[in-house]
């Protein structure tokens, strides 16, 4: 066996490798292990997406309810603020006795962190609709349902999308901690490689998580422009 002069060969947990322990990042090693990272990346996307979709499914109707019945708003804000304030790891541990070790626990925790921002942004968006716009719609003969679907909700979209954007990035980042509970997502590699002197594994998983967040962010920015073309229309511009 030919040992390189710079340092010991990384055993790579059973397999031989051309990488060195003190190398910052070893592309060959990353290429060899791409399958593992790709699988975790896909899982990460799913874990995050499920949480965001469920978060929307809860927060949007709740916001509509609070918009119609202001009484409902304070309890909803208190509840979602409490969820938002609990440290994520503590949350996971608190949930284990109830929901066990698995995806369910992870999703409940992640959904809990989406609610406050989605709820508050949606309520703010709904309330930001100018009163004269609703007055005109009502006087013209739109029904309350048509006003909600055609006027109020579309006008709340910029605020909803702004909330969604922050929530998406946050969820992707929080989902890296899910691996403490159950083997899901890029957090597995991060946990696995974090104590290792060979840092290529940690860098791979970390950078992939960051890239995922950036890509998701860019997608939502694009989607926002697509669904709210009017938001950029100003006098003089087109």
């Amino acid at each position: 066996m030919n040992l390189p002069a710079q340092g010991p060969v990384i055993p790579d947990f059973g397999n031989t490798s051309g990488c060195k322990a003190n190398e910052t990042f070893c592309w060959d090693w990353f290429a060899d292990h791409w399958d593992r990272f790709a699988a975790e990346l896909v899982q990460h996307v799913w874990v995050s997406a499920i949480a965001i979709v469920i978060g929307l499914a809860i927060a949007l109707p709740a916001a509509l309810l609070a918009y119609r019945l202001p009484r409902f708003e304070t309890p909803a804000v208190v509840f979602s603020t409490i969820l938002y304030t609990v440290p994520v790891l503590g949350f996971f541990l608190l949930m284990i006795p109830v929901t066990g070790i698995g995806l369910l626990t992870i999703e409940i925790a992640l959904v809990g962190y989406t609610l406050l921002l989605l709820f508050r942004n949606t309520v703010t968006g709904l309330r930001s609709v100018p009163p004269e716009v609703r007055a005109a719609a009502l006087g013209m003969g739109l029904t309350p349902g048509q006003i909600l679907v055609r006027i109020t909700f579309p006008l709340a979209l910029p605020a909803v999308m702004a909330g969604l954007r922050v929530v998406t990035v946050t969820t992707i980042s929080l989902a890296t901690l899910a691996a403490y509970i159950a083997p899901y997502g890029l957090g597995q590699s991060i946990l696995f490689y974090i104590g290792n002197t060979f840092i290529s594994g940690l860098i791979s998983a970390g950078v992939l998580a960051i890239l995922l967040a950036l890509v998701a962010d860019a997608l939502i920015v694009g989607l926002t422009k697509l669904v709210t073309p009017w938001a950029r229309a100003r006098r003089g511009g087109a």
Binding site: E132, A135, A136, W230
Partner: peptide, 11 residues
């Protein structure tokens, strides 16, 4: 129906 603040639908 026409009102002072117009109330066009901005979107």
């Amino acid at each position: 129906y026409v009102i002072q603040q117009v109330g066009l639908f901005p979107h």
